[in-house]
């Protein structure tokens, strides 16, 4: 059972709460969790309350991996490591932007930690500003659509590829819309000795602007359109891919979200949608999704 108590302050349909529940349920009780600054930290630990029924620590925005590495080293030095797993639960900004230095260092050194990036594709805690995880065309508060703008001008950073380049024993993508897939991968990661990286796609109803009852549905559409491919990499080699049957056009995913609405209402939007379709097509080819 999950050790995240109810009564936290997450939004209805919150992706962070779902992700944390799946990780905790899969990883068991013998864990220590590290969270950087972000929604998950804020909504679960307003002093003196805490929703965490496992040992949990937050230090700063950009140092979750370094803190996790320090905990792992301490447990080893003190003879308390045993089967205890150290798990970082971090957002996309903390992982792909400000915290990349420490994350790369921890993986290069090979600490026995599992790092989960809960990727909701922008800085939600501060009000939906773009991050390195924001996809092409998404309107955020710092990449807004406007007279001369179709939203974010860059593609998502391919963070799993960067992590795989460290030669880590296990790097995988998953989605909170596929709990069984996610929990299987978390279980696999914590059972492996060494640094493992899980990149979980996590639709945020507040930031992406969709009905809070549709979190799971939106996440599934990302996978079914091939905009979020699910795969596993072991020691830099792809070892598993979730194939897509009856692939859907990217419009099905885009039109369900307010952050892409301008692509359907502004003149020239269809060209932008075509570029996003190209990204999905590239994923299909590169990861052999069909």
């Amino acid at each position: 059972m999950s050790r995240l108590a109810p009564g936290h302050r997450g939004c209805p349909g919150c992706c962070d709460a779902m992700a944390a529940n799946f990780v905790l349920e899969a990883a068991g009780d013998d864990i220590i969790v590290v969270s950087p600054t972000g929604c998950l930290e804020v909504m679960t630990t307003p002093y003196p309350e805490s929703a965490w029924e496992v040992p949990w620590i937050h230090s700063l925005f950009e140092n979750a991996a370094s803190v996790a590495a320090g905990i792992e080293s301490a447990l080893k030095a003190l003879g308390r490591k045993g089967n205890t797993k150290i798990i970082a639960l971090a957002g996309d900004g903390a992982t792909m932007d400000i915290g990349t230095l420490g994350l790369s260092g921890a993986f290069e050194r090979g600490h026995d930690i599992t790092y989960v990036c809960i990727d909701n594709e922008a800085y939600m805690n501060t009000g939906v500003q773009r991050s390195g995880g924001t996809p092409y065309g998404a309107s955020t508060t710092t990449s807004p659509t406007g007279k001369e703008s179709f939203g974010n001008r860059t593609q998502k950073k391919n963070m799993p590829a960067i992590m795989a380049a460290h030669g880590a024993p296990y790097v995988t993508t998953t989605s909170i819309s596929y709990p069984k897939d996610m929990m299987r991968k978390v279980k696999k990661a914590v059972d492996i000795e060494g640094p493992c990286y899980i990149h979980a796609h996590a639709p945020c109803s507040t930031g992406w602007r969709f009905e809070s009852s549709r979190t799971v549905e939106i996440g599934k559409l990302a996978v079914e359109t091939a905009l979020w491919p699910l795969y596993e990499i072991e020691y830099s080699e792809i070892t598993g891919v979730k194939k897509i049957k009856n692939r859907k056009p990217v419009e099905d995913y885009l039109k369900a979200q307010g952050r892409f609405k301008h692509l359907f209402t502004k003149e020239g939007g269809e060209k932008e949608i075509a570029k996003i379709q190209d990204i999905a097509d590239w994923n299909v080819k590169h990861y052999e999704l069909e």
């Binding site: 220590i32 590290v34 620590i57 230090s59 700063l60 950009e62 140092n63 991996a65 370094s66 803190v67 996790a68 590495a69 320090g70 905990i71 792992e72 080293s73 301490a74 447990l75 030095a77 003190l78 308390r80 230095l101 420490g102 790369s104 260092g105 921890a106 290069e108 050194r109």
Partner: peptide, 19 residues
């Protein structure tokens, strides 16, 4: 470690773990 920022950050975790 790979930077001074992380050097002290790791000690946050280590010290909190009782080291």
């Amino acid at each position: 470690i790979e930077s001074e920022f992380s050097a002290l950050s790791a000690l946050v975790g280590a010290s909190a773990a009782g080291a």
